[in-house]
Write a protein that binds this DNA or RNA. Structure first.
Lengths: 204, 204
DNA sequence: TAATTTGATATACTTAAATAGATCAAAATC
DNA sequence: GATTTTGATCTATTTAAGTATATCAAATTA
């Protein structure tokens, strides 16, 4: 296989991992069997253009033919867009942490109607907040804070009647969200995104 | 077929035409049958990645997966690199004109040994000069001048004993070459390319 | 520790890309 | 006007992508 094929195939795998998807999850989204995805990522097939385009689309990528002389410049652009403020692999871990939290909240949703009103409010607030985090950019410290929130939610689910744990988790997640939203404004020179905040915790 | 597939296929055809190649010529270089190239360019097959990569390579292109958000920027870069100082289609016509001239000179080479020494020298000078033109950038006026040179060479071949026609063609081609080389230096801000010129017609 | 998920590999089948070569009408060239 | 070149289409054959499904060992999660 030529360099270019290996490069394409490697980029697909990296993009899948970057999005925190398993091969089975990508399979479900792209309509391609998991076994075939494994072969593709291992360059064990010479895949068809339409298959490549579909996989790329699901992963937020577009296939382009670029004059060879411009390849280094384009690679630099891509690198700048991807690498900003996260160390390698960090995005993957963060997405996995967010996934765990969403799973916990999804599992517990049926039970949350049995909670006292205060706790149910915390639960819903957690769900709203976690949905606001997906596009924000985490560092290791932020991911560690997210992990603590996941722990707190897990403990709260184990002892539903223990007062305050869900509230603490909700507050900490909100703090994390505001801190990240604030940091994004600093990184992105330009007008800040317009947030409509439901809480008084507004540092923007 | 999705937009992206059509885009890729269109870019291949445009690149082939830009280089002044016929489907048969591309076939010979890429090792793909002409009939298949026709189908590819008409989106009548869902071609394999290895075929695409090979065609792209021959055409001076590289296949890249680009984040969707960067596609407009990359397209702008590509447009700037291609479109500089030539109107659409101009490069194609110029390459065809250069091809004609090369063909004429190649056909006439065997006979040129029968020419008087002066005329033979003009012939060789024409051949050297035409080889220096391939990478230079023509406008409509320059292409018209090239066309006149092709006419002059054709006439010289019809009447080999008519004095001066070959010399006139050789001089005009040299003038065109120097003008283009000079123009290139003006377009490309930066150090001028280092030419080693065989003639006194040195305007650099 | 047990259960679940993951990526890799296998079998069997269907569909189509790729190839070789020929041929045609239209366009371009001489 | 005659010849050559071009892009498109055709037939027949071979090879392999794509699919469905199962299974496995290793890794991860609970």
């Amino acid at each position: 296989m030529t360099y270019s094929l290996e490069h394409i195939v490697g980029a697909l795998k990296a993009a899948r991992e970057e999005k925190g998807l398993s091969q089975r999850e990508l399979s479900a989204r792209a309509g391609v069997p998991q076994a075939h995805i494994s072969k593709i990522e291992n360059a064990a097939v010479d895949l068809k253009l339409s298959s490549l385009v579909e996989l790329a689309r699901v992963l937020g990528l577009e296939l382009m033919l670029v004059p060879r002389s411009l390849v280094p410049a384009v690679q630099t652009m891509i690198g700048s867009a991807d690498g900003a403020s996260s160390p390698p692999g960090e995005t993957h871990r963060t997405l996995n942490e967010l996934k765990r939290l969403r799973n916990l909240l999804a599992q517990g949703t049926a039970q949350s109607t049995e909670l006292p009103p205060d706790a149910r409010e915390d639960w819903e607030r957690l769900q709203r907040t976690v949905n606001e985090l997906g596009h924000l950019r985490f560092g290791p410290a932020e991911r560690e804070q997210l992990r603590r929130v996941v722990e707190q939610v897990r403990r709260a689910q184990k002892h539903p009647k223990r007062a305050g744990t869900l509230r603490a988790a909700s507050n900490e997640l909100r703090t994390l969200r505001n801190r990240l939203a604030h940091g994004i404004a600093e990184i992105a020179s330009g007008p800040k995104p317009a947030y409509i905040l439901d809480d008084e915790d507004d540092n923007a």
